[in-house]
Design a protein around this nucleic acid. Structure first.
Lengths: 133, 133
DNA sequence: CAATACTTTTGAACGATTCTAAAATAAAAA
DNA sequence: TTTTTATTTTAGAATCGTTCAAAAGTATTG
């Protein structure tokens, strides 16, 4: 188990300038870790924490973090877009009633029988969503 | 192999009034079958076939058909929402470059190790999307 | 055919997200 | 430091896919 990184270290190693906004958002995401987060939820959490940040910056930051591999973007249905602070390979339960997601560690689920890919194609990732009601 | 149903029969058995618009859309979807269809694509196909129908009706109809189990709605990412004319249980390749989907029959892929569900919960369906680039 | 129920249409409204370009801030250079 | 340059943030407008509202049209029932 590696020691947890500070927001500053996280931004440094992702090659992103440690601005006030990014540091605050990184802290909310990776220190006070909440797993499955929407842009709106993070924006409101920032506001209620007294962190002054615009919604556009929340979106920018979530997208930058995703591009740098610090977050994983999960789209479950047309009105549920989450950012997942767990970037390890894993799967999800989706509770249709509440809109909640719950992790399934990748090592408990086994898949086999994946058909051959077309020439030159490579698997980027495999998403399994078990929809539960 | 059952004989293919006519648009009229499809609408009848789904308990939907056979209007001109629904008959045309059903024909495009289930007779001149195109598998993975967006609302916009269907709207334009209708127009170029000389079928006069509004975009709102295309959306209404796709949603009604989905609710009646004639279509399956697949959301792959924030800007790719498809309706699948194959409602049998199956999975998908998603080609990130082109945005195309390709079916994987459910019987070729095997999963096991699904964790126990919380009390009272039941699995609605399992979606596997293999993202390929 | 008249009455009722449902469907379609247009255009406005919506919510989530992205864009724009001006103001602010960070980093690098002097 | 101070200045310069590069990057980031911001507010608000714009965009996109989709849904809504209410009036007009069409199917079904009696």
């Amino acid at each position: 188990m590696l020691p947890p990184k500070s927001p500053l270290q996280i931004l440094r190693s992702a090659d992103l300038r440690p601005t006030r906004q990014r540091l605050s958002l990184a802290k909310m995401l990776f220190v006070e870790c909440d797993q499955h987060v929407t842009a709106d939820w993070l924006y409101n959490k920032a506001l209620s924490n007294g962190v002054s940040v615009s919604l556009a910056t929340v979106y920018n930051t979530l997208n930058q973090f995703t591009k740098k591999g610090l977050l994983r973007h999960i789209i479950v249905d047309s009105n549920s877009s989450y950012f997942d602070t767990n970037t390890n390979h894993h799967h999800h339960f989706f509770f249709e009633g509440t809109g909640q997601l719950k992790d399934i560690p990748s090592d408990v689920i086994k898949i086999h029988g994946i058909p051959l890919l077309p020439d030159g194609a490579t698997i980027d990732r495999i998403d399994i969503i078990i929809r539960v009601r």
